[in-house]
Design a protein around this nucleic acid. Sequence first.
DNA 1: CACCAGGCAAGTA
DNA 2: TACTTGCATGGT
Length: 219
Amino acid sequence: MTKTLLDIYNRLHAHFGPQHWWPAENPFEVMIGAILTQNTAWSNVEKAIANLKRRKLLSPRKIERIHPRTLAVAIRPSGFYNEKAKKLKAFIKFLISFTGGNINKLRSNGTALLRKKLLGIKGIGEETADSILLYALNKPIFVVDAYTKRVFTRHKLISKDAAYGEIQRFFMNNLPRRVKLFNEYHALIVEAGKNYCKKNNPLCKICPLKDFKYDKNMV
DNA sequence: CACCAGGCAAGTA
DNA sequence: TACTTGCATGGT
């Protein structure tokens, strides 16, 4: 039952190799990056993060105190900077009120509670919440994004109109609940989506999943 | 020039 | 509920 999704994972991993996500120095940086990368190329997020580091702003207390306009200027390269400045402030406000900015204390809470809390913050939706849970807090939850939907729809493994939660359950119900696996799998899907499952290229000849024989009853 | 990128919330019908 | 639109930079 869990065999086929694992087979796809193995195929992708053999092709692309380990992805080393999330590229950041610490969990706090992961959380900031998760917000900054919303609908934005990662290369632009890197510039914004570098600006924050250069200005010594990459800490809960600094972002708590800084004026939104100043914060917006620093994160400008990541786009939607006024919106994202608000989002960062809202997230930090939650973080400080909830655990005083202590990440370990944050991590000591259950996944379901944390997810609910994160979704209550203006600017954090399901993907961002799950990215924070998995990549910053090491919680076993599967991250779904546009690539996940595109790749698995193209390969006819999920329906076109599947909601976020359905797709997430599809993976979580059919894979061993391991943080490392969820981490690597999502990153590999992103890599596959970037490289192969593009628009105008649905039948890519070198797609690593091209000749993959899947079982219709895999789930 | 157009299109896209590791989304989300608010508005409309 | 199911679309649509605003938000914005930087790479191809």
